[in-house]
């Protein structure tokens, strides 16, 4: 048994509902529509012994429609098989939570919600996990600047914009070699 066999099995069971499968350096990826995502994950969990969720990630394809992509990394408990299940998510769509299949998906999904703003339906506790309740932005979206944005919540937290130039850790772009680009080589005026 390998993950490749599982992909073949999934194709037999779900047929056309498996949109695409990708193999890259023996890593198996299955792409499905958002409506079928929970069914496929449930099948992997219950019939194929994928007992563990390693990670839940998300990708922002800004400019494309649908904009986001949700990625579930699952594995068997003896670590012999890994599988990646992906699905596209539009900005106004919700993903059905996988917490009923793996309790471990709880915090991963909260992080996706916190950083990317993708909402999960049927999640038992969908609130921010890293930033505080009331922080108005989703920092890992492509349209969020690296330096951050100002926000204010009295008595909870304020944020500002970080300076990205002139700091002691900023390298100089365009230098001929690493010696010139080295931050400490710069003469501060």
């Amino acid at each position: 048994m390998s993950a490749a066999d599982d992909v073949t099995k999934l194709r037999e069971v779900f047929g056309e509902r498996i949109l695409e499968t990708v193999e890259f350096r023996e890593e198996q990826t299955v792409k499905v529509a958002l409506a079928d995502l929970h069914d496929v994950l449930a099948h992997c969990r219950e019939k194929m012994e994928y007992e563990m969720v390693l990670d839940v990630a998300s990708v922002d394809h800004m400019g494309e429609d649908p904009r986001f992509e949700i990625v579930y990394e699952i594995a068997t408990l003896d670590d012999s098989r890994h599988l990646r299940v992906k699905s596209k998510v539009a900005e106004d769509e919700e993903v059905e939570s996988a917490t009923d299949l793996w309790a471990g998906a709880n915090w991963h999904e909260r992080e996706v919600f916190d950083m990317m703003g993708i909402r999960f339906s049927k999640h038992p506790n969908l609130k921010r996990i890293l930033m505080w309740e009331g922080y108005p932005f989703y920092p890992l979206r492509k349209d969020f600047p690296l330096a951050g944005r100002p926000s204010e919540m009295p008595d909870v937290a304020n944020t500002g914009v970080a300076p990205l130039e002139g700091g002691p850790f900023v390298t100089c772009a365009g230098g001929e070699n690493t010696v010139v680009r080295e931050p400490r080589a710069r003469v501060v005026e």
């Binding site: 920092p139 951050g148 700091g167 002691p168 850790f169």
Partner: peptide, 21 residues
């Protein structure tokens, strides 16, 4: 240290740029 003094290498949305603020 650098972080408490100026934010250090964390030029980021999440880090206060120096406790002296």
């Amino acid at each position: 240290g650098a972080c408490a003094s100026s934010g250090g290498m964390y030029r980021s949305y999440a880090v206060l740029q120096g406790i002296d603020q």
